[in-house]
Amino acid sequence: MEPLMAFVVGGLFAASIYMMLRRSLVKLVIGLILLSNAANLLIFTVSGMQRGLPPLIAPGDTLPAGGWADPLPQALVLTAIVIGFGVLAFAVVLIHRAYVVVKEDDLEKMRSTDT
């Protein structure tokens, strides 16, 4: 499965960078979401994908029966998903706010604040 996922992740990265390179603010938001998903999948993929071995322990046991998928990357990705959402929410509201203030959606025209 990992080789297939390599192409999926690559496609997500390409799409996210392409969208972030657009000059429209709205497309920048879409790019950010795709980038966050791509990064999460990347970590998940390279940690080794296994079918049907969730790191859960049945009542009465002390270890998952029949092996387990590595739980640590999952914990990291879980954290990343939630943080990614926090960043996204902030970015979306920030971009909206920027649009309200400067009345401009074209990133190339928002440069005067920078120089």
């Binding site: 996922m5 690559g10 496609g11 960078i17 392409y18 390179l21």
Partner: peptide, 21 residues
Amino acid sequence: KDAVVAVALGGLMTLLILAVN
């Protein structure tokens, strides 16, 4: 031009995962 840049990064990530795998 942007599409080329984007696909270059996507391709790199794919190759990296395959190499790591």
